[in-house]
Design a protein around this nucleic acid. Structure first.
Lengths: 131, 131, 131, 131
DNA sequence: GTGGTCTAGACCACC
DNA sequence: GTGGTCTAGACCACG
Protein backbone atom coordinates (compact mmCIF):
# COMPACT_ATOMS: atom_id res chain seq x y z
CA UNK A 1 0.00 0.00 0.00
CA UNK A 2 2.75 2.40 0.93
CA UNK A 3 5.24 3.06 -1.82
CA UNK A 4 8.65 4.47 -1.07
CA UNK A 5 11.38 5.64 -3.40
CA UNK A 6 14.63 5.41 -1.43
CA UNK A 7 16.48 7.26 -4.19
CA UNK A 8 14.22 10.30 -4.03
CA UNK A 9 15.58 13.51 -2.57
CA UNK A 10 12.48 13.65 -0.38
CA UNK A 11 13.31 12.08 3.00
CA UNK A 12 11.84 8.62 3.49
CA UNK A 13 9.97 9.61 6.63
CA UNK A 14 8.41 12.51 4.71
CA UNK A 15 7.33 10.20 1.90
CA UNK A 16 5.62 7.98 4.45
CA UNK A 17 3.83 10.96 5.99
CA UNK A 18 2.63 12.16 2.57
CA UNK A 19 1.61 8.67 1.59
CA UNK A 20 -0.53 8.06 4.64
CA UNK A 21 -2.18 11.46 4.45
CA UNK A 22 -3.09 10.75 0.84
CA UNK A 23 -4.45 7.33 1.71
CA UNK A 24 -6.71 8.90 4.30
CA UNK A 25 -8.00 11.35 1.70
CA UNK A 26 -8.66 8.51 -0.70
CA UNK A 27 -10.68 6.77 1.98
CA UNK A 28 -8.27 3.84 2.02
CA UNK A 29 -7.51 4.48 5.66
CA UNK A 30 -10.53 5.19 7.88
CA UNK A 31 -10.80 6.94 11.25
CA UNK A 32 -9.70 4.79 14.22
CA UNK A 33 -8.13 2.29 11.86
CA UNK A 34 -4.82 0.99 13.14
CA UNK A 35 -1.61 1.61 11.23
CA UNK A 36 0.97 -1.16 10.96
CA UNK A 37 3.25 -1.21 13.98
CA UNK A 38 6.56 0.62 13.72
CA UNK A 39 8.51 -2.62 13.47
CA UNK A 40 6.04 -4.19 11.08
CA UNK A 41 6.16 -1.30 8.60
CA UNK A 42 9.92 -1.09 8.94
CA UNK A 43 10.13 -4.72 7.88
CA UNK A 44 7.71 -4.18 4.99
CA UNK A 45 9.63 -1.19 3.63
CA UNK A 46 13.02 -2.61 4.60
CA UNK A 47 13.91 0.56 6.42
CA UNK A 48 14.97 1.28 9.96
CA UNK A 49 12.29 1.37 12.69
CA UNK A 50 13.60 4.77 13.76
CA UNK A 51 12.67 6.21 10.39
CA UNK A 52 9.12 4.89 10.69
CA UNK A 53 8.95 6.17 14.24
CA UNK A 54 9.90 9.63 13.00
CA UNK A 55 7.16 9.51 10.37
CA UNK A 56 4.54 8.33 12.85
CA UNK A 57 5.48 11.01 15.34
CA UNK A 58 5.22 13.69 12.67
CA UNK A 59 1.75 12.42 11.74
CA UNK A 60 0.76 12.56 15.39
CA UNK A 61 2.14 16.07 15.71
CA UNK A 62 -0.06 17.11 12.79
CA UNK A 63 -2.99 15.46 14.58
CA UNK A 64 -3.51 13.19 11.57
CA UNK A 65 -3.08 10.18 13.85
CA UNK A 66 -2.98 9.47 17.56
CA UNK A 67 -0.89 6.84 19.27
CA UNK A 68 -1.54 4.70 22.33
CA UNK A 69 1.73 3.38 23.74
CA UNK A 70 1.56 -0.36 23.87
CA UNK A 71 -1.33 -0.46 21.41
CA UNK A 72 -0.36 1.24 18.20
CA UNK A 73 -1.04 4.28 16.03
CA UNK A 74 -4.53 5.10 14.81
CA UNK A 75 -6.13 7.43 12.27
CA UNK A 76 -7.75 10.49 13.83
CA UNK A 77 -11.27 11.60 13.12
CA UNK A 78 -11.50 13.81 10.07
CA UNK A 79 -10.89 17.39 11.09
CA UNK A 80 -10.32 20.78 9.61
CA UNK A 81 -7.65 23.11 10.86
CA UNK A 82 -8.32 26.77 11.16
CA UNK A 83 -7.51 28.29 7.78
CA UNK A 84 -5.44 31.27 8.77
CA UNK A 85 -3.85 33.82 6.49
CA UNK A 86 -0.43 32.28 6.92
CA UNK A 87 -1.48 28.92 5.57
CA UNK A 88 -3.38 30.49 2.68
CA UNK A 89 -0.15 32.20 1.63
CA UNK A 90 1.64 28.88 1.95
CA UNK A 91 -0.78 27.17 -0.43
CA UNK A 92 -0.48 30.03 -2.87
CA UNK A 93 3.30 29.87 -2.75
CA UNK A 94 3.33 26.18 -3.65
CA UNK A 95 0.79 26.75 -6.42
CA UNK A 96 2.85 29.64 -7.74
CA UNK A 97 5.94 27.49 -7.93
CA UNK A 98 3.85 24.87 -9.72
CA UNK A 99 2.66 27.45 -12.23
CA UNK A 100 6.18 28.72 -12.92
CA UNK A 101 7.43 25.19 -13.54
CA UNK A 102 4.41 24.41 -15.69
CA UNK A 103 5.07 27.50 -17.79
CA UNK A 104 8.49 26.20 -18.76
CA UNK A 105 6.88 22.99 -19.91
CA UNK A 106 4.48 24.90 -22.07
CA UNK A 107 1.52 24.22 -19.81
CA UNK A 108 -0.78 27.20 -19.70
CA UNK A 109 -3.58 28.41 -17.53
CA UNK A 110 -6.51 26.44 -18.92
CA UNK A 111 -4.42 23.28 -19.12
CA UNK A 112 -3.39 23.73 -15.48
CA UNK A 113 -7.01 24.12 -14.40
CA UNK A 114 -7.79 20.93 -16.25
CA UNK A 115 -4.91 19.05 -14.61
CA UNK A 116 -6.07 20.23 -11.20
CA UNK A 117 -9.52 18.82 -11.97
CA UNK A 118 -7.93 15.53 -12.96
CA UNK A 119 -5.97 15.38 -9.73
CA UNK A 120 -9.20 15.67 -7.78
CA UNK A 121 -10.78 12.96 -9.88
CA UNK A 122 -7.84 10.64 -9.31
CA UNK A 123 -8.08 11.20 -5.59
CA UNK A 124 -11.72 10.19 -5.96
CA UNK A 125 -12.63 13.04 -3.69
CA UNK A 126 -15.83 14.86 -4.36
CA UNK A 127 -15.50 17.80 -2.10
CA UNK A 128 -17.93 20.12 -3.83
CA UNK A 129 -20.61 19.43 -1.32
CA UNK A 130 -23.93 20.94 -2.39
CA UNK A 131 -24.58 24.05 -0.36
CA UNK B 1 14.04 43.01 -6.89
CA UNK B 2 15.18 39.67 -5.52
CA UNK B 3 13.87 38.86 -2.10
CA UNK B 4 15.61 36.27 0.05
CA UNK B 5 14.56 34.84 3.38
CA UNK B 6 17.69 33.52 5.06
CA UNK B 7 15.57 31.80 7.73
CA UNK B 8 13.62 29.74 5.25
CA UNK B 9 14.22 26.02 5.02
CA UNK B 10 14.50 26.42 1.26
CA UNK B 11 18.19 26.75 0.32
CA UNK B 12 19.19 30.29 -0.57
CA UNK B 13 20.49 29.34 -4.01
CA UNK B 14 17.12 27.71 -4.73
CA UNK B 15 15.26 30.81 -3.65
CA UNK B 16 17.34 32.85 -6.09
CA UNK B 17 16.61 30.43 -8.92
CA UNK B 18 12.87 30.51 -8.19
CA UNK B 19 12.91 34.26 -7.86
CA UNK B 20 14.55 34.84 -11.23
CA UNK B 21 12.32 32.37 -13.03
CA UNK B 22 9.30 34.12 -11.61
CA UNK B 23 10.61 37.53 -12.65
CA UNK B 24 10.98 36.28 -16.21
CA UNK B 25 7.40 35.07 -16.19
CA UNK B 26 6.23 38.40 -14.88
CA UNK B 27 8.06 40.10 -17.72
CA UNK B 28 10.35 41.95 -15.33
CA UNK B 29 13.35 40.27 -16.86
CA UNK B 30 13.37 40.18 -20.68
CA UNK B 31 15.19 37.88 -23.12
CA UNK B 32 18.88 38.75 -23.61
CA UNK B 33 18.78 41.01 -20.57
CA UNK B 34 21.93 40.72 -18.47
CA UNK B 35 21.78 39.46 -14.91
CA UNK B 36 23.81 41.26 -12.24
CA UNK B 37 27.32 39.88 -11.88
CA UNK B 38 27.92 37.23 -9.25
CA UNK B 39 29.81 39.66 -7.02
CA UNK B 40 27.28 42.40 -7.54
CA UNK B 41 24.32 40.22 -6.54
CA UNK B 42 26.27 38.72 -3.66
CA UNK B 43 26.79 42.21 -2.30
CA UNK B 44 23.14 43.15 -2.80
CA UNK B 45 21.88 40.09 -0.96
CA UNK B 46 24.75 40.10 1.55
CA UNK B 47 25.37 36.47 0.83
CA UNK B 48 28.24 34.27 -0.22
CA UNK B 49 29.35 34.59 -3.90
CA UNK B 50 29.58 30.80 -4.03
CA UNK B 51 25.83 30.66 -3.38
CA UNK B 52 25.10 33.03 -6.26
CA UNK B 53 27.44 31.05 -8.48
CA UNK B 54 25.50 27.91 -7.68
CA UNK B 55 22.18 29.58 -8.48
CA UNK B 56 23.46 30.91 -11.83
CA UNK B 57 24.86 27.50 -12.72
CA UNK B 58 21.50 25.89 -11.99
CA UNK B 59 19.65 28.47 -14.12
CA UNK B 60 22.01 27.76 -16.98
CA UNK B 61 21.55 24.04 -16.55
CA UNK B 62 17.81 24.53 -16.89
CA UNK B 63 18.48 26.63 -20.00
CA UNK B 64 16.68 29.56 -18.41
CA UNK B 65 19.80 31.63 -18.94
CA UNK B 66 22.94 31.39 -21.02
CA UNK B 67 26.36 32.70 -20.14
CA UNK B 68 29.02 34.33 -22.23
CA UNK B 69 32.43 33.91 -20.58
CA UNK B 70 33.80 37.27 -19.60
CA UNK B 71 30.48 38.99 -20.30
CA UNK B 72 27.97 37.57 -17.86
CA UNK B 73 24.71 35.67 -17.69
CA UNK B 74 21.76 36.50 -19.91
CA UNK B 75 18.10 35.55 -20.05
CA UNK B 76 17.32 32.98 -22.73
CA UNK B 77 14.66 33.42 -25.36
CA UNK B 78 11.27 32.26 -24.16
CA UNK B 79 11.06 28.58 -24.93
CA UNK B 80 8.87 25.61 -24.30
CA UNK B 81 10.33 22.29 -23.33
CA UNK B 82 8.81 19.18 -24.76
CA UNK B 83 5.98 18.20 -22.43
CA UNK B 84 6.75 14.57 -21.88
CA UNK B 85 4.84 12.13 -19.75
CA UNK B 86 7.44 12.24 -17.01
CA UNK B 87 7.09 15.96 -16.46
CA UNK B 88 3.33 15.77 -16.57
CA UNK B 89 3.46 13.28 -13.72
CA UNK B 90 5.82 15.60 -11.87
CA UNK B 91 3.38 18.51 -12.10
CA UNK B 92 0.54 16.28 -11.03
CA UNK B 93 2.53 15.05 -8.04
CA UNK B 94 3.15 18.57 -6.80
CA UNK B 95 -0.47 19.51 -7.37
CA UNK B 96 -1.58 16.39 -5.53
CA UNK B 97 0.50 17.29 -2.52
CA UNK B 98 -1.00 20.76 -2.66
CA UNK B 99 -4.49 19.31 -2.73
CA UNK B 100 -3.82 17.00 0.23
CA UNK B 101 -2.50 19.86 2.33
CA UNK B 102 -5.39 22.08 1.28
CA UNK B 103 -7.86 19.39 2.31
CA UNK B 104 -6.55 19.45 5.88
CA UNK B 105 -7.10 23.19 5.94
CA UNK B 106 -10.66 22.76 4.80
CA UNK B 107 -9.99 24.12 1.31
CA UNK B 108 -12.06 22.24 -1.24
CA UNK B 109 -12.02 21.77 -4.96
CA UNK B 110 -13.83 24.91 -6.12
CA UNK B 111 -11.85 27.06 -3.71
CA UNK B 112 -8.62 25.55 -5.03
CA UNK B 113 -9.60 26.29 -8.62
CA UNK B 114 -10.31 29.85 -7.57
CA UNK B 115 -6.94 30.19 -5.83
CA UNK B 116 -5.18 28.87 -8.92
CA UNK B 117 -6.92 31.54 -10.98
CA UNK B 118 -5.79 34.17 -8.50
CA UNK B 119 -2.21 32.97 -8.73
CA UNK B 120 -2.28 33.48 -12.48
CA UNK B 121 -3.74 36.94 -12.06
CA UNK B 122 -1.06 37.89 -9.54
CA UNK B 123 1.63 36.72 -11.91
CA UNK B 124 0.01 39.03 -14.47
CA UNK B 125 0.49 36.36 -17.05
CA UNK B 126 -1.97 35.99 -19.87
CA UNK B 127 -1.10 32.56 -21.06
CA UNK B 128 -4.36 31.70 -22.73
CA UNK B 129 -2.83 32.30 -26.09
CA UNK B 130 -5.26 31.73 -28.96
CA UNK B 131 -4.58 28.34 -30.52
CA UNK C 1 -17.17 8.31 38.54
CA UNK C 2 -13.73 7.55 37.20
CA UNK C 3 -13.02 8.99 33.80
CA UNK C 4 -10.27 7.55 31.66
CA UNK C 5 -8.93 8.79 28.34
CA UNK C 6 -7.30 5.79 26.64
CA UNK C 7 -5.80 8.13 24.00
CA UNK C 8 -3.96 10.25 26.51
CA UNK C 9 -0.19 10.04 26.74
CA UNK C 10 -0.58 9.68 30.50
CA UNK C 11 -0.52 5.96 31.40
CA UNK C 12 -3.94 4.59 32.27
CA UNK C 13 -2.87 3.36 35.70
CA UNK C 14 -1.58 6.87 36.44
CA UNK C 15 -4.87 8.40 35.36
CA UNK C 16 -6.69 6.11 37.77
CA UNK C 17 -4.35 7.06 40.62
CA UNK C 18 -4.82 10.78 39.91
CA UNK C 19 -8.54 10.36 39.58
CA UNK C 20 -8.97 8.63 42.92
CA UNK C 21 -6.73 11.09 44.75
CA UNK C 22 -8.77 13.93 43.35
CA UNK C 23 -12.04 12.27 44.35
CA UNK C 24 -10.78 11.99 47.91
CA UNK C 25 -9.93 15.68 47.93
CA UNK C 26 -13.38 16.52 46.64
CA UNK C 27 -14.91 14.50 49.44
CA UNK C 28 -16.48 12.06 47.00
CA UNK C 29 -14.52 9.22 48.52
CA UNK C 30 -14.44 9.17 52.32
CA UNK C 31 -11.99 7.56 54.77
CA UNK C 32 -12.48 3.81 55.22
CA UNK C 33 -14.72 3.69 52.17
CA UNK C 34 -14.12 0.60 50.06
CA UNK C 35 -12.86 0.93 46.50
CA UNK C 36 -14.42 -1.24 43.78
CA UNK C 37 -12.70 -4.59 43.41
CA UNK C 38 -9.99 -4.89 40.80
CA UNK C 39 -12.19 -7.01 38.55
CA UNK C 40 -15.19 -4.76 39.04
CA UNK C 41 -13.31 -1.59 38.11
CA UNK C 42 -11.60 -3.34 35.21
CA UNK C 43 -15.02 -4.20 33.82
CA UNK C 44 -16.33 -0.68 34.36
CA UNK C 45 -13.39 0.91 32.56
CA UNK C 46 -13.11 -1.92 30.02
CA UNK C 47 -9.44 -2.18 30.75
CA UNK C 48 -6.96 -4.84 31.79
CA UNK C 49 -7.18 -5.98 35.45
CA UNK C 50 -3.39 -5.82 35.60
CA UNK C 51 -3.63 -2.09 34.98
CA UNK C 52 -6.07 -1.63 37.87
CA UNK C 53 -3.89 -3.76 40.06
CA UNK C 54 -0.94 -1.52 39.30
CA UNK C 55 -2.96 1.60 40.13
CA UNK C 56 -4.16 0.17 43.45
CA UNK C 57 -0.64 -0.88 44.36
CA UNK C 58 0.62 2.62 43.66
CA UNK C 59 -2.13 4.18 45.79
CA UNK C 60 -1.21 1.87 48.64
CA UNK C 61 2.47 2.68 48.22
CA UNK C 62 1.60 6.36 48.58
CA UNK C 63 -0.44 5.46 51.69
CA UNK C 64 -3.52 6.97 50.12
CA UNK C 65 -5.28 3.64 50.60
CA UNK C 66 -4.71 0.52 52.65
CA UNK C 67 -5.71 -3.01 51.73
CA UNK C 68 -7.10 -5.84 53.79
CA UNK C 69 -6.31 -9.16 52.10
CA UNK C 70 -9.50 -10.87 51.08
CA UNK C 71 -11.55 -7.74 51.79
CA UNK C 72 -10.38 -5.09 49.37
CA UNK C 73 -8.80 -1.64 49.26
CA UNK C 74 -9.94 1.20 51.51
CA UNK C 75 -9.36 4.94 51.69
CA UNK C 76 -6.89 5.95 54.39
CA UNK C 77 -7.59 8.54 57.02
CA UNK C 78 -6.74 12.02 55.86
CA UNK C 79 -3.12 12.59 56.64
CA UNK C 80 -0.39 15.06 56.05
CA UNK C 81 3.09 13.97 55.09
CA UNK C 82 6.02 15.83 56.52
CA UNK C 83 6.72 18.72 54.20
CA UNK C 84 10.42 18.32 53.67
CA UNK C 85 12.66 20.50 51.58
CA UNK C 86 12.80 17.92 48.81
CA UNK C 87 9.07 17.90 48.24
CA UNK C 88 8.90 21.68 48.40
CA UNK C 89 11.39 21.81 45.54
CA UNK C 90 9.31 19.25 43.67
CA UNK C 91 6.18 21.40 43.92
CA UNK C 92 8.13 24.46 42.87
CA UNK C 93 9.54 22.61 39.87
CA UNK C 94 6.10 21.66 38.60
CA UNK C 95 4.80 25.17 39.21
CA UNK C 96 7.81 26.61 37.40
CA UNK C 97 7.12 24.46 34.35
CA UNK C 98 3.52 25.61 34.49
CA UNK C 99 4.61 29.25 34.60
CA UNK C 100 6.98 28.82 31.65
CA UNK C 101 4.25 27.24 29.53
CA UNK C 102 1.77 29.90 30.61
CA UNK C 103 4.20 32.61 29.58
CA UNK C 104 4.28 31.33 26.02
CA UNK C 105 0.50 31.52 25.95
CA UNK C 106 0.57 35.09 27.11
CA UNK C 107 -0.69 34.27 30.61
CA UNK C 108 0.95 36.49 33.18
CA UNK C 109 1.43 36.47 36.91
CA UNK C 110 -1.87 37.94 38.07
CA UNK C 111 -3.83 35.77 35.64
CA UNK C 112 -2.01 32.68 36.92
CA UNK C 113 -2.85 33.56 40.53
CA UNK C 114 -6.46 33.93 39.49
CA UNK C 115 -6.46 30.56 37.72
CA UNK C 116 -4.97 28.90 40.79
CA UNK C 117 -7.83 30.35 42.86
CA UNK C 118 -10.32 28.98 40.35
CA UNK C 119 -8.76 25.54 40.56
CA UNK C 120 -9.29 25.52 44.31
CA UNK C 121 -12.87 26.64 43.89
CA UNK C 122 -13.55 23.90 41.35
CA UNK C 123 -12.13 21.33 43.70
CA UNK C 124 -14.60 22.67 46.27
CA UNK C 125 -11.91 22.41 48.86
CA UNK C 126 -11.82 24.88 51.68
CA UNK C 127 -8.31 24.38 52.85
CA UNK C 128 -7.80 27.71 54.56
CA UNK C 129 -8.25 26.10 57.88
CA UNK C 130 -8.01 28.61 60.75
CA UNK C 131 -4.56 28.43 62.26
CA UNK D 1 24.28 26.75 31.76
CA UNK D 2 22.15 23.76 30.85
CA UNK D 3 21.75 21.21 33.61
CA UNK D 4 20.69 17.68 32.84
CA UNK D 5 19.81 14.83 35.17
CA UNK D 6 20.38 11.64 33.16
CA UNK D 7 18.70 9.58 35.92
CA UNK D 8 15.45 11.53 35.77
CA UNK D 9 12.37 9.85 34.32
CA UNK D 10 11.93 12.94 32.16
CA UNK D 11 13.59 12.31 28.78
CA UNK D 12 16.87 14.11 28.29
CA UNK D 13 15.68 15.90 25.16
CA UNK D 14 12.65 17.15 27.09
CA UNK D 15 14.85 18.43 29.89
CA UNK D 16 16.88 20.36 27.34
CA UNK D 17 13.73 21.86 25.82
CA UNK D 18 12.42 22.92 29.25
CA UNK D 19 15.79 24.26 30.24
CA UNK D 20 16.18 26.46 27.20
CA UNK D 21 12.63 27.78 27.40
CA UNK D 22 13.25 28.72 31.01
CA UNK D 23 16.53 30.42 30.15
CA UNK D 24 14.73 32.54 27.58
CA UNK D 25 12.17 33.55 30.18
CA UNK D 26 14.93 34.49 32.60
CA UNK D 27 16.46 36.68 29.92
CA UNK D 28 19.64 34.58 29.86
CA UNK D 29 19.05 33.78 26.19
CA UNK D 30 18.06 36.72 24.01
CA UNK D 31 16.27 36.85 20.62
CA UNK D 32 18.52 36.00 17.66
CA UNK D 33 21.16 34.66 20.00
CA UNK D 34 22.78 31.51 18.69
CA UNK D 35 22.49 28.25 20.59
CA UNK D 36 25.51 25.94 20.82
CA UNK D 37 25.76 23.69 17.80
CA UNK D 38 24.27 20.23 18.05
CA UNK D 39 27.68 18.59 18.29
CA UNK D 40 29.01 21.19 20.68
CA UNK D 41 26.16 20.78 23.17
CA UNK D 42 26.32 17.02 22.82
CA UNK D 43 29.95 17.16 23.87
CA UNK D 44 29.19 19.51 26.76
CA UNK D 45 26.42 17.30 28.13
CA UNK D 46 28.16 14.07 27.14
CA UNK D 47 25.09 12.87 25.31
CA UNK D 48 24.47 11.77 21.78
CA UNK D 49 24.10 14.43 19.06
CA UNK D 50 20.83 12.79 18.00
CA UNK D 51 19.34 13.57 21.39
CA UNK D 52 20.30 17.24 21.10
CA UNK D 53 18.98 17.29 17.54
CA UNK D 54 15.65 16.00 18.79
CA UNK D 55 15.49 18.72 21.43
CA UNK D 56 16.40 21.46 18.95
CA UNK D 57 13.82 20.28 16.47
CA UNK D 58 11.13 20.26 19.13
CA UNK D 59 12.06 23.82 20.09
CA UNK D 60 11.81 24.83 16.44
CA UNK D 61 8.46 23.11 16.12
CA UNK D 62 7.22 25.17 19.06
CA UNK D 63 8.59 28.26 17.28
CA UNK D 64 10.78 28.97 20.28
CA UNK D 65 13.80 28.88 17.99
CA UNK D 66 14.51 28.88 14.29
CA UNK D 67 17.33 27.06 12.54
CA UNK D 68 19.36 27.92 9.51
CA UNK D 69 20.98 24.79 8.07
CA UNK D 70 24.70 25.30 7.93
CA UNK D 71 24.53 28.21 10.39
CA UNK D 72 22.92 27.06 13.61
CA UNK D 73 19.86 27.44 15.80
CA UNK D 74 18.71 30.83 17.02
CA UNK D 75 16.25 32.16 19.60
CA UNK D 76 13.05 33.48 18.03
CA UNK D 77 11.57 36.87 18.77
CA UNK D 78 9.38 36.85 21.84
CA UNK D 79 5.89 35.87 20.82
CA UNK D 80 2.56 34.97 22.30
CA UNK D 81 0.52 32.09 21.04
CA UNK D 82 -3.19 32.42 20.75
CA UNK D 83 -4.61 31.43 24.11
CA UNK D 84 -7.36 29.09 23.12
CA UNK D 85 -9.74 27.24 25.38
CA UNK D 86 -7.87 23.97 24.94
CA UNK D 87 -4.62 25.36 26.28
CA UNK D 88 -6.38 27.06 29.18
CA UNK D 89 -7.75 23.68 30.21
CA UNK D 90 -4.27 22.22 29.88
CA UNK D 91 -2.81 24.77 32.27
CA UNK D 92 -5.65 24.18 34.71
CA UNK D 93 -5.10 20.43 34.57
CA UNK D 94 -1.44 20.75 35.48
CA UNK D 95 -2.27 23.20 38.26
CA UNK D 96 -4.94 20.84 39.56
CA UNK D 97 -2.48 17.98 39.73
CA UNK D 98 -0.11 20.31 41.52
CA UNK D 99 -2.80 21.21 44.05
CA UNK D 100 -3.70 17.58 44.69
CA UNK D 101 -0.07 16.67 45.33
CA UNK D 102 0.39 19.73 47.50
CA UNK D 103 -2.62 18.74 49.58
CA UNK D 104 -0.98 15.46 50.51
CA UNK D 105 2.05 17.35 51.68
CA UNK D 106 -0.10 19.53 53.87
CA UNK D 107 0.30 22.58 51.67
CA UNK D 108 -2.90 24.58 51.56
CA UNK D 109 -4.36 27.27 49.39
CA UNK D 110 -2.70 30.37 50.81
CA UNK D 111 0.65 28.61 51.00
CA UNK D 112 0.31 27.58 47.36
CA UNK D 113 -0.44 31.13 46.29
CA UNK D 114 2.66 32.22 48.18
CA UNK D 115 4.81 29.56 46.51
CA UNK D 116 3.53 30.62 43.11
CA UNK D 117 4.58 34.18 43.89
CA UNK D 118 8.02 32.94 44.89
CA UNK D 119 8.36 31.03 41.64
CA UNK D 120 7.75 34.23 39.71
CA UNK D 121 10.29 36.06 41.83
CA UNK D 122 12.90 33.36 41.24
CA UNK D 123 12.32 33.57 37.52
CA UNK D 124 12.97 37.29 37.93
CA UNK D 125 10.09 37.95 35.62
CA UNK D 126 7.97 40.99 36.25
CA UNK D 127 5.07 40.34 33.96
CA UNK D 128 2.55 42.55 35.69
CA UNK D 129 3.11 45.29 33.21
CA UNK D 130 1.26 48.46 34.14
CA UNK D 131 -1.75 48.88 31.89
C1' DG E 1 31.87 24.09 10.01
C1' DT E 2 26.48 23.50 10.31
C1' DG E 3 21.80 21.04 10.60
C1' DG E 4 19.19 16.96 8.58
C1' DT E 5 18.59 12.18 7.60
C1' DC E 6 19.43 7.39 8.20
C1' DT E 7 21.01 2.76 10.00
C1' DA E 8 21.88 -0.70 13.58
C1' DG E 9 20.98 -2.13 17.79
C1' DA E 10 19.70 -1.43 22.65
C1' DC E 11 16.62 -0.71 26.84
C1' DC E 12 12.37 0.86 29.00
C1' DA E 13 7.34 1.35 30.41
C1' DC E 14 2.89 0.06 29.29
C1' DC E 15 -0.91 -3.17 28.38
C1' DG F 1 3.48 -7.37 21.71
C1' DT F 2 3.51 -1.97 21.43
C1' DG F 3 5.48 2.95 21.16
C1' DG F 4 9.28 5.97 23.20
C1' DT F 5 13.99 7.05 24.17
C1' DC F 6 18.83 6.71 23.57
C1' DT F 7 23.60 5.59 21.77
C1' DA F 8 27.11 5.09 18.15
C1' DG F 9 28.45 6.11 13.95
C1' DA F 10 27.62 7.36 9.06
C1' DC F 11 26.56 10.34 4.89
C1' DC F 12 24.56 14.43 2.70
C1' DA F 13 23.56 19.36 1.28
C1' DC F 14 24.40 23.98 2.45
C1' DG F 15 27.18 28.24 2.93
Amino acid sequence: MINIDPRSSIPIYQQIVDNIKESILRGILMPDERLPSVRELARQLTTNPNTIQKAYKELERQKVTYSIPGKGSFISEDFKQRLDEEKMIEIKEILKKCVVEAHYMGVQKDKMLQILQEVYQELEVEENAPN
